[in-house]
Design a protein around this nucleic acid. Structure first.
Ligand code: MN
Ligand code: MN
Ligand code: MN
Ligand code: MN
Lengths: 154, 154
DNA sequence: TGTACAATGTAGCCTAGGCTACACATTGTG
DNA sequence: CACAATGTGTAGCCTAGGCTACATTGTACA
């Protein structure tokens, strides 16, 4: 702005994280965001199959709160990625990889919800927050959540 | 799939959340995702101004781990939304709204990091996880985090 | 058995946020 | 003062994930 611009090299400053470390952090978040949709879809599809015997586009759309056109588009991607199998006008199936991902996702989801509840959050709020948080917790943090859920319950 | 498709009406099933509630939950997550970029950018811009006297496109790009073209594109949006002021070839300024959002974001970020650390997570991991989690915690949960950080410290 | 209606598929549009390549401005230095 | 290096702007491309509108298929029931 006003004063002459300093060389690019490095801060003259205090208290900022190392550049590469901060960039890696944001990159990790973007990476997690990339898997978010896939995780939520396979988890929901698995839930529907378990509860209703089959997963239909129209039900996935209603529960995700999006149009069926959006669901179709996302299913095409998941299919390309080997997570679901679809045939025209048939209901949706999970591949083995898809079923595995669904199980892991459900497990992580459960751990986050139970932890938040153990903290005293009401269940509806815990459920809502978990739906976002679940995709951004590292393995270490998930394990800490599990541990603390036990301790806090006492 | 195999058996005749049942009427749309409603499950014949157990243990699934109410449709509208689940859809509202996913919608809330999508809503949070919309503000994520804005929050991270104004927070970073504010940090840079505080630490280095000014926020330059090239430094934002390096710390976000993206190209400067991406930063310019996002700044155009933030400007349209009244969070930043930019003039060609000048460094970036926050509007009052932008500065307010930055402060709130930094505060939430701090609370999440401190909570995770109190749980025993190492600081680098806490910092990484917080960068994602911070955008998906409700007010209730943030307050619970604050409360528990005190208690766990003891 | 026809046919209306529900479900599915698809085309075309939009925004956000990535990228590279290239053009232009600013600035520090020889 | 010129000019190379650095920083900034922008065009054009891409993918993801939203939408509506319309076409097609499958199913239920009159
Ligand atoms: Mn989720
Ligand atoms: Mn989930
Ligand atoms: Mn963040
Ligand atoms: Mn942050």
């Amino acid at each position: 702005m006003s004063s002459p611009k300093s060389a690019t090299v490095e801060p003259v400053n205090p208290d900022l994280a190392p550049i590469e470390q901060q960039a890696a952090g944001f990159e990790a978040v973007r990476e997690a965001r990339r898997s978010e949709t896939a995780e939520d879809y396979v988890e929901l599809i698995d839930d529907l199959i378990k509860a209703m015997g089959e997963a239909r586009v129209v039900d996935v759309a209603a529960r995700m709160g999006v149009s069926h056109a959006t669901v179709n588009r996302i299913l095409a991607r998941l299919s390309k990625e080997g997570l679901v199998n679809t045939q025209p006008y048939r209901s949706i199936f999970l591949t083995e990889a898809g079923a595995d991902l669904a199980q892991q996702s459900r497990e992580r989801h459960r751990i986050v919800v139970e932890f938040l509840c153990a903290l005293g959050i009401d269940e509806a709020t815990a459920e809502r927050d978990a739906e976002g948080i679940e995709h951004y917790v590292s393995t270490e943090t998930i394990e800490a959540f599990q541990t603390w859920t036990g301790k806090l319950a006492k």
